[in-house]
Amino acid sequence: MPARPRRIGPQQRRDFRAGARAIAPLMPGSVVFGLAVGALINLAGWPAWMGPYASATVSAGASQIAIIDALTQGAPAVIAILTALVINARLALYSASLAPVFAAFPTRWKLVLSYLMTDQSAAVSVLTQDAWPNPVRRRWFILGVSGPFTGVWILGTAAGAILGPVIPAEWQIGFIVPLMFIAVLVPALRTLPAVAATGISIAVVLLLKDLPYGLNVLAGAIAGIGLASFIPDRADAGGASGGGSPEAVAE
């Protein structure tokens, strides 16, 4: 199957579409959130192209909001940049978790798929990796997961930056953020260590809620990963049998 690397065959197209379908339920949320972030660009008085530009380059909504907030409140550029990078430090964790998933890919694929990495696409890619053992088919699938999702994010921000605040504040569309992550995370929560990592992480985020720059989020994630990794997964007590075992733990 990997014999014709320069041709995009029907198999690759199918795998790409399978990836796009896997993340499609999250796309409306991404568009709506993009509209809101684009509207902030509009309210800041910057040219509309800045919205899709930020979404196509930084491509991480929370940090884009932080930058707009910081600059419109007159913070120095250095502070705006550092805040954004601290918020995005969690992507280093996703990157690490994707290392074994991407290991067999050519370097140019690693460069492109890393560029397209978001919370949502990274999570979907990691959680579905066992269904895609063939590295060629897997990389087309992951391109389908991450490419279109980033695409609609850019389009959503572009629309928001042009239209301005079309979504009334009373709709409280900020709810889309926890809802999207609940939809990615909870259906896939099946093992005791994963449940523990989630619980520990939530507890630490709340305990450290007064930390600045969203550092509580980073601290919570690291604490959850570190502490829960000591809990044996009863599904594979003996060693590294691929992770993500299908054996369900009753919650």
Binding site: A96, D119, V126, G199, S201, A221, A228
Partner: peptide
């Protein structure tokens, strides 16, 4: 393998 649940739990909280 715990990165995704821990990070998403943190963002949700």
């Amino acid at each position: 393998s715990l990165v995704a649940p821990a990070a998403m739990g943190a963002i949700i909280a």
